[in-house]
Amino acid sequence: MSETYDFLFKFLVIGNAGTGKSCLLHQFIEKRFKDDSNHTIGVEFGSKIINVVNKYVKLQIWDTAGQERFRSVTRSYYRGAAGALLVYDITSRETYNALTNWLTDARMLASQNIVIILCGNKKDLDADREVTFLEASRFAQENELMFLETSALTGENVEEAFIQCARKILNKIESGELDPERMGSGIQYGDAALRQLRSPRRGQAESAQECGC
């Protein structure tokens, strides 16, 4: 791979169905709004390298299905996530009310130390707002979350959300609060050489043979 980066973080995007998770991801990666997105079944992926405090960080983003029943499946994706965007829709109280459940899942299944940013999406639909900024802000504070209101449509605060989350993780690494070497931290060093060393040689021997298909 030609791309170089200092760190790789695994990110999750979680929250109820229809809150705009996939659109946030699309906006973040493609810098435009996707108005014809299919609903996510299972999980979708995206990755992007960003520059945060002079470090190149590759974000590996797992965009999960929001419908309640998919939780049994999406739970298997949480493992080893370093950060998460917890998304609700400011025009739907129902999606806001579900936040606690999502939070529990994330902390339990990913890691206690997972860095979460709360995103009140669809900021552009202010006229239909059902959840006030203040209210959500308080919730974020109580639960030690960062908080932003975003709009996947206009792109407002979208990149910001990812960057803030990544910045906090970097800070935690620097302060020693997070150890990238620890298994399941969701953080990897991005040094290409280091990665190759880590993958065993026998891997190459194996991959040389055809899949017996």
Partner: peptide
Amino acid sequence: KLCPAAYKHLQRHGVEPLMFATDWLMC
């Protein structure tokens, strides 16, 4: 059983069927 080399590769990189085949199957 049917594509052992690919299967080994998936295992080595921690890729489970649920990560790529959920919507293959469901849809």
